[in-house]
Design a protein around this nucleic acid. Sequence first.
DNA 1: AATGAATGAGCTTTCATTCAT
DNA 2: AATGAATGAAAGCTCATTCAT
Lengths: 207, 207, 207, 207
Amino acid sequence: MSQIRAAGLQLIYQRGYEGMGLRLLAAEAGIGQSTLYGHYANKQEVLVDLICRHMEELLSCLHRAVPADAPPFARFLTFLRFHLTYHMRRPREVFICYSELRSLEPANLARVTDLRRRYEHALIAIIRDGMAAGVMRRADPRVAAYGLLAMLSGVPVWFDPQGPLSEEEVCAEYIRLAVAAVADPLEAALSDRTIATPLPDSPARKA
Amino acid sequence: MSQIRAAGLQLIYQRGYEGMGLRLLAAEAGIGQSTLYGHYANKQEVLVDLICRHMEELLSCLHRAVPADAPPFARFLTFLRFHLTYHMRRPREVFICYSELRSLEPANLARVTDLRRRYEHALIAIIRDGMAAGVMRRADPRVAAYGLLAMLSGVPVWFDPQGPLSEEEVCAEYIRLAVAAVADPLEAALSDRTIATPLPDSPARKA
Amino acid sequence: MSQIRAAGLQLIYQRGYEGMGLRLLAAEAGIGQSTLYGHYANKQEVLVDLICRHMEELLSCLHRAVPADAPPFARFLTFLRFHLTYHMRRPREVFICYSELRSLEPANLARVTDLRRRYEHALIAIIRDGMAAGVMRRADPRVAAYGLLAMLSGVPVWFDPQGPLSEEEVCAEYIRLAVAAVADPLEAALSDRTIATPLPDSPARKA
Amino acid sequence: MSQIRAAGLQLIYQRGYEGMGLRLLAAEAGIGQSTLYGHYANKQEVLVDLICRHMEELLSCLHRAVPADAPPFARFLTFLRFHLTYHMRRPREVFICYSELRSLEPANLARVTDLRRRYEHALIAIIRDGMAAGVMRRADPRVAAYGLLAMLSGVPVWFDPQGPLSEEEVCAEYIRLAVAAVADPLEAALSDRTIATPLPDSPARKA
DNA sequence: AATGAATGAGCTTTCATTCAT
DNA sequence: AATGAATGAAAGCTCATTCAT
């Protein structure tokens, strides 16, 4: 039930998986405590549902957002904007998916790790292609991808939608950082024109 | 007692603060369960001790490692190397200091947040100075600092000392990313010579 | 649940509130330890329930037993007999209601103190009326009431239903003491005829 | 040590024997926790010491205060005044000696019960003698003694030295009640002259 | 699909007590 | 005589889970 998921998301975000009691989860979802077991086999399943659902949606949205046949640098820019937007709008899911992995039982962790790897490899492939095409500096593409992902994924920690910087401004700032970090300097000089590729679900804007 | 800290560090890293039972902590530390209360007033104090101790040491080492009177770019490089080395060697502390903040009671959280802010401001100041000196691209120094810190701090998530990449190789790779991300392109082209400043406690290497 | 109350009454009487463990209480009541919390929010509530329930019943029985419109001396005699009978038959409740007051949290103590005050004032009013009517010696009615209540309430400390003295004999003996203590000597001389007013729930007897 | 006794008296009075932790007792007495065991074999001994010491002193003071060879009624009056004064001045000891008996181990309880019995029998003997001498109404002397002792011992529950009634006024009021309760009416009429026998350790006063 | 009642296992914390110094 | 450190046992309470309805 979606009310359980909503309550679980909020509670795990605030108190952690171990810190969330099922009593409270049920109360917050507006149902009886034992009714939970009509929807989930046990507590762990609530966490697995939240994490997997988020990561699967992340993956499928990614594939929809990033055209497989575009040139590497365009795919790179699209990826950056997609990732940033998605993460700024789902700070709780992002936090849970990172810091509650340790609460997953091995089999569930393996499932999640696989999803995560597929997402990471999407960026790794983009970077690899970009290097092959000569538009990115030669470097270890895995290290570069991990570095960029960590940088981008850290946004929700401090970003506040009501704060002084708009989502768009933060996007632009981070994209500049990321592009500068990996692009071939010459290409980077040209990239300003293309940074502002609009995302399907975000209001279009021009450079 | 240091044995309690060692056990607490490991257990909180593996199972989280809420997931760590004091029975297990005591057993792991090789003492009776109630003996814990001769060293800490309560469970929370164990966490506070671990987090504060780490952050205070981080701050004091930072101040020792980064000379206040050096030019901005040199300070930047020193900061990067210091931060990376410190974080690669303390993956558990790093993880705890980030993802167990929510388990801190308000007063303790305030104390930790202050320490964290002081550390972040060290990098912000460096970037601000670098921009003023014209060696770094104009950008929001806070955003740049947060972005870089997230990128650098993400290393321990995947870095494995027994893995194919050495600590030094990872350092060099990340420093290239970070420098490229914020440096003025011209300056960056010149920076390769200076990236490999050796740290006192790490084996010297050449660029 | 009444089985919990029965077990709690016995255990608190024997070992005191602080001395009663909830493990033992549950065992004595024939339920699991955590089942207690389905009936009481916490340990204190068990005590509050026992004390308040007894005092409220005491008050309501008193009002049923003592007719408000009878002459003072008749009300006095009825009060004495009622109080004695009630206390001889509930030695454990009486003891708890007196000596566990200190274990009550302030709010609960206030509630109980109010009930107790209402009971005491019933006797004070009787004595005041008796003095106004000239059938009792002039004295401080509060002091007299406290003195008599202490005297009467002390019965369960030594009274043994299986002992040599019957409930009725003890009643008569104490009533003589109490009447002599406060009655106007002339009236007291005449009162022997009226001492033995039968109580509804006690076997009728004649003087 | 007398500081331990003082702290124990206060703590047991406030929180009960079971409710008094030895940590707190030691802190209140200004000594280390384990130092207690240099003075008492265990917690129980602290209680036994307090109770026995009080009852033994009560007994020995009683024998000093009440002359064995005086006529019954004079001894009665002396006893009343002695008991009241002693109890009004030691409310905490009195409370403990009554309501902590249940915390005594059997052997210790027996010892205390014996002391208590000796005290009660002093009054029983006085009443018996009074009846034999014809100055008191015929009644069960044990019941009368228990009734009077309960009445008199209840004073400290409500008496407040700073309150509106002085110690002397309360004494006089209670003595009138007690005398009226057991005296032969004719004798009682004559007794007013003799109520105010002064106690050694209380300021002399006149009727 | 939903629930109230029940429960064994576990939680953090405090207990009275011991012991080496 | 005094103490700091240590400890097994027990405290009150919450946990995730089951089950009959």
